[in-house]
Amino acid sequence: MYFAQLKNELWKLFGKKRTYIGFGAFLLAQTAMLLAFRFTRWQSDFERLLSGNGYLASEFISALTVSVVMLMPQIILLMPLYTTLVGGDLVAKEAEDGTLRMILARPISRFRLLLVKWNAGIIFAAVLVVALGLTALGFARLLFPWGGMFVFAPGQTFSVLSSHDGWLRFAMSHLFLALNASVMLSIAFMFSCFNMKPAAATILALSYLFVNVVMEGIPFFDRYDDWFITHHFRSWLLVFRTPTPWAQIIQSEIILVAVSLTVFIIGWMVFQTRDIKS
């Protein structure tokens, strides 16, 4: 029954056009960035940076390098927007439309309903990240050759990898990116469980993320980095460091999973006590 409900939740989610706004925006952004990288000074500046550090630009201006360059701003700006947009819709939109009342006239527990919705949201987040990664790589490959990877990694200035190693780490980084997206979606989902409009849930989730970014950027809070969720979101880039700081990555991932579960439980507790009226 759970899988039938999950399948139906995915039908609902992927059946509406709104869900695809994120995919469409990513495609447009990627196209724009790729063209900008290729046909502005961006590429030549990058080549100069590489040669200044003793690397051959022809070896490292590759599809892998360019795809990560394209991904970074999208992950910072667009991914929170579209994951929270969908997360904020999951419960609040159904409450607003009245379909939630139809569902809750049936013998399904509120916990089960939320679990199914949350899991469908996580699947959406994962699909969004995979689509983002594949299209970034695919688009970059159209204009750039397959080759070594040059990437800026936190705590290491930059990292240089072979094409094989680079590809493996690129794929692995998407696992962590998917978790980041799930956490963003979960925060919006939690707000969505409150008695509020879908847009309000999205805005509150974005505000929470924004406050994290701002506070993390204030020097006074440097020693409290671990308390900011956005600090842990950066673990996807740590994958590119050599040697890979697995302990740090795993710690961040555990914190992100814990945050996800916590916000889900808060959302459920609020939803459980709510009166659902027309």
């Binding site: 039908w11 056009k17 139809m102």
Partner: peptide, 22 residues
């Protein structure tokens, strides 16, 4: 309920499948 609401972007059949699965 008054003013029956459904997932308008899906077929009637799909709506029935979804709601009955609960």
């Amino acid at each position: 309920f008054e003013a029956p609401v459904f997932y308008d972007y899906l077929s009637g059949w799909r709506n029935l499948e979804i709601l009955s699965s609960y």
